[in-house]
Amino acid sequence: MSAAPAAPRPASADPADRNLDLLLVAPRARTGWRVVPARILAMCVVELQKLRHDRTELYTRAVQPALWLLIYGETFTRIRAIPTGGIPYLDYLAPGIIAQSAMFIAIFYGIMIIWERDSGILIKLLVTPTPRAALVTGKAFAAGVKSLIQAVVVVVIAALLGVALTWNPLRLLGVAAVVLLGSAFFSCLSMTIAGIVLTRDRLMGIGQAITMPLFFGSNALYPVSVMPGWLRAVSGINPLSYEVDALRGLLIGTPAHLGMDFGVLAIAAALGITAASSLLSRLAR
């Protein structure tokens, strides 16, 4: 005669019994759309934990923007060679250098993912149930947080040099959003190139070849009005120009097209995540 099935354990109001229930019955796994944000955040935290072991990257990368502001900015402020609409050139330059320093951090992010491929980490990540878009997005926004730390350094240097920056909390939140979106795009561009060239040496060469054209082909150093026609066309399709335009409008109050700037950066970041995700499996072969 078979035994009757055991009755389900009744829920208890006692906290100790509830903890025992968790040991006997596995908690319900998160499913659907709730999985993706959690895994994006987890990947972002994993990337940022690397800074705890080596912070030299942040210190060394602060040297170049400091030199741009101290030498280039101070010199062109004195000679007044570039028309900036009555704004001191150093004030005009500071948002462009923030965007430049953020781009320089993000544009070589693909080297890290190639290193993860070579060390076997990437294959282990790809066999987890985490969507590839979540992996890429987590890494992209980790690059954005690193760039945001770099941006804070540049803002402090600019403030010490007397640049008239806003300290409005809402505007500063907008600055953070702009830096995150811009860095997300450039890090995804780097990961996309990594998925095409597959080696660190090739990626380093291409990264060095495109960073300065992206920088000089934007409005970071001079207004669009002084550019030749062909360079205006380049600036119009360069996401860095929209990042700089938004940063100038938020930080020093120049006329800006903030709605369009945020829209372009958001679309560029989404396209970058899509492209990098589609090439991630090729990188892991």
Rank of each mutant, 00 (worst) to 15 (best):
A7C: 09
P8W: 12
S12K: 11
A13D: 13
D14K: 10
D14H: 14
D17R: 15
R18H: 10
D21T: 15
L23V: 15
P27S: 13
R28W: 05
W33V: 14
V35K: 10
V35C: 08
L41W: 10
V46K: 15
E47G: 06
T56Y: 09
T60W: 09
R61C: 11
L67G: 12
L67R: 12
E74S: 15
T75S: 11
F76M: 13
I79N: 08
I79W: 07
R80T: 15
I82A: 07
I87M: 10
Y92L: 02
G96K: 04
Q100P: 01
A102F: 01
M103C: 07
F104W: 11
I105W: 00
I105A: 02
I105R: 01
I111T: 08
M112W: 01
I114R: 01
R117L: 03
R117P: 03
R117Y: 02
K124F: 00
K124C: 00
P131V: 02
A133V: 00
L135W: 05
A140H: 02
A142C: 00
A142E: 01
V145G: 07
Q150V: 05
V155E: 05
L160M: 09
G162K: 11
A164V: 13
L165D: 02
W167S: 13
N168F: 12
P169I: 09
P169W: 09
R171M: 13
V178M: 12
L181I: 10
G182F: 09
A184I: 07
L189P: 03
S190M: 13
T192M: 12
I193P: 04
M204Q: 15
I206T: 15
T211P: 13
T211F: 15
M212S: 15
S218Q: 07
Y222A: 14
P223W: 07
V224T: 05
S225H: 02
S225P: 01
V226D: 08
P228K: 12
P228H: 14
I237E: 02
P239N: 06
E243S: 10
G249H: 04
G253F: 06
G253M: 06
P255Q: 04
M260R: 05
F262S: 06
G263Q: 02
L265H: 05
I267N: 00
A268R: 02
T274D: 06
A275L: 05
A275Q: 03
A276E: 05
A276G: 05
S277P: 00
R282K: 12
A284W: 04
